[in-house]
Computed example of a mutant assay.
Amino acid sequence: MAKWGEGDPRWIVEERADATNVNNWHWTERDATNWSSDKLKSLLLGLSVENEEGKCEVTEVSKCEGEASINNRKGKLIFFYEWNLKATWTGKKTGLSRSEVQE
């Protein structure tokens, strides 16, 4: 703990005449909802997973509700997000031969 008057000048906001948050040191928050919504839709739409058992592909993102924000506290980024997504997908199961079916 520094003695009075010997602390890091970035920490001292109340003593500044202009009360500036120097270099966003104390706290900043930015809304990232619009960017996140667009990014989630672009990442999910057309997403395809395929293996020897079949294939599945996301064809539509019909619901993308929620919020996201980016915070900066003393030089560290903190991300908050909460999303409710609804997507439509199609899938196709690869046919198995009789010898591969287990009963």
Rank of each mutant, 00 (worst) to 15 (best):
K92N: 08
G5M: 03
S42N: 06
N72A: 08
E50M: 07
R16W: 03
V101H: 14
K39C: 12
E67Q: 07
K63S: 06
S37R: 11
E14H: 11
I70L: 12
I12A: 04
D31A: 00
E52S: 14
T33N: 01
G5E: 02
D18V: 07
I12T: 02
N21Y: 10
K3E: 12
R98P: 08
D18Q: 08
V101Y: 13
T88P: 03
P9Y: 00
H26R: 15
N72F: 12
T90W: 08
C56T: 14
W89G: 11
T88H: 07
K93T: 11
V58S: 01
T28W: 00
V49I: 14
W89M: 09
Q102H: 13
L96F: 13
E60P: 01
S97P: 09
V49H: 12
T20F: 13
E103G: 12
L77V: 14
E29Q: 02
E6D: 10
A32Q: 15
F79R: 12
K39D: 13
C64W: 02
G7D: 10
E67D: 09
P9S: 01
L85M: 02
E67G: 12
K92T: 15
T28M: 07
F80T: 05
G66F: 00
S48K: 15
A17G: 11
T33F: 01
G91Q: 06
E50C: 06
F80N: 13
Y81A: 09
S97E: 14
G46H: 06
M1V: 09
V22Y: 10
T90I: 11
D8E: 01
V49E: 12
E6N: 05
I12H: 03
E60F: 04
D38C: 03
N21C: 11
E60Y: 02
L40F: 04
S99N: 14
E15I: 03
V49T: 08
T33L: 00
K93Q: 10
N21G: 09
K39S: 11
L44G: 03
F80M: 03
T28G: 04
P9R: 01
C56P: 00
N51S: 04
F79C: 10
N23W: 10
A19C: 12
A17K: 12
K41S: 05
G75Q: 02
T28C: 05
T33Y: 01
G95Q: 15
G54C: 05
K93M: 10
G46K: 05
S36C: 06
K55Y: 07
W35S: 07
N34G: 08
N51D: 14
E100R: 06
G95E: 15
K63W: 00
T90Q: 13
W4P: 05
E15V: 01
